[in-house]
């Protein structure tokens, strides 16, 4: 594992993997979208609105996965002081924030026809909004500190504190809604999802994951190249 943490090795390996990963995400997303938007029948209760699920649920999954990866990279960066891990954590954050926002927006678009409102203070929604703020705070902290290693360490501490606190936030928000929820705005919980809906969802989830890793690799590579260009410029400066 650590063998590939060498930036030069990483650049050659990621450069070889990247086209395949990009192609895989394009294929999976295209297939998933076709299955979800055209092949799958309208739901007997939700009608065509059910199709929002195929872009919404994977976005939420990817957003959570991104935080997990960011926290893991932060831990590695903090313990082994590895610059590549710092770069990985830094570049995962905006992607995570993006997928979180995507999950919130698509959820809101689904909620309008289904629940009759753009927003409810449901446990899931609220903790996702807080997750978005965690991402934004992380990005803001990183941008505020000029020295890159210091910024990486500070942001890593914040990411780990957030990782410890995130389950507690989740729990407290769930506890809060179960206490307060008067009218029941329930999802179609309990009833199993039919295979005709499950397959597009599965394809889309894989597609989103592949897309995340593609974008992540591109961002890490761009960051490494930017740093190289900067140090070359500093070396060449009179």
């Amino acid at each position: 594992m650590l063998r590939y943490a060498n930036p030069a090795k990483f650049m050659s390996l990621s450069g070889a993997v990247l086209p395949w990963l990009a192609a895989a995400s394009a294929l999976l997303l295209a297939g998933g979208l076709y299955l979800g938007l055209f092949a799958a029948p309208p739901d007997y209760q939700q009608g065509d609105t059910v199709r929002v699920m195929f872009v919404h649920v994977p976005a939420a999954w990817t957003a959570m996965m991104a935080y997990g990866l960011m926290a893991a990279a932060s831990l590695i960066g903090l313990v082994w002081r590895h610059p590549l891990a710092d770069v990985a954590a830094k570049t995962a954050a905006p992607l995570g924030a993006l997928f979180t926002a995507l999950g919130l927006i698509t959820g809101s678009l689904w909620g309008r026809p289904m629940w009759g409102t753009w927003w409810v203070w449901d446990g899931r929604l609220t903790s996702f909004l807080l997750l978005l703020f965690l991402y934004l705070g992380y990005i803001a902290l990183w941008n505020a500190i000029e020295d890159e290693t210091r910024a990486a360490r500070a942001a890593a501490i914040l990411a780990l504190v957030g990782a410890v606190n995130l389950p507690i936030i989740e729990f407290s928000v769930d506890w809060w809604t179960t206490l307060h929820q008067g009218e029941s705005i329930l999802r179609r919980g309990g009833s199993l999802i039919a295979p005709v809906f499950l397959w597009p969802l599965f394809a889309m989830a894989l597609g989103y994951t592949a897309l995340f890793f593609t974008l992540w690799l591109v961002r890490i590579r761009t960051e490494i190249l930017t740093r190289r260009a900067r140090s070359l410029m500093l070396m060449g400066a009179p």
Binding site: L130, L141, N165
Partner: peptide, 27 residues
């Protein structure tokens, strides 16, 4: 501690702390 000595640290502090304090407010 994270924002000490940081430019605009006072502005970033609430952004990073408030989401973490959600459980305290809820309970």
């Amino acid at each position: 501690g994270l924002t000490v000595g940081v430019r605009r640290g006072g502005l970033i502090l609430p952004l990073i702390v408030l989401p973490l304090l959600a459980p305290a407010v809820i309970f």
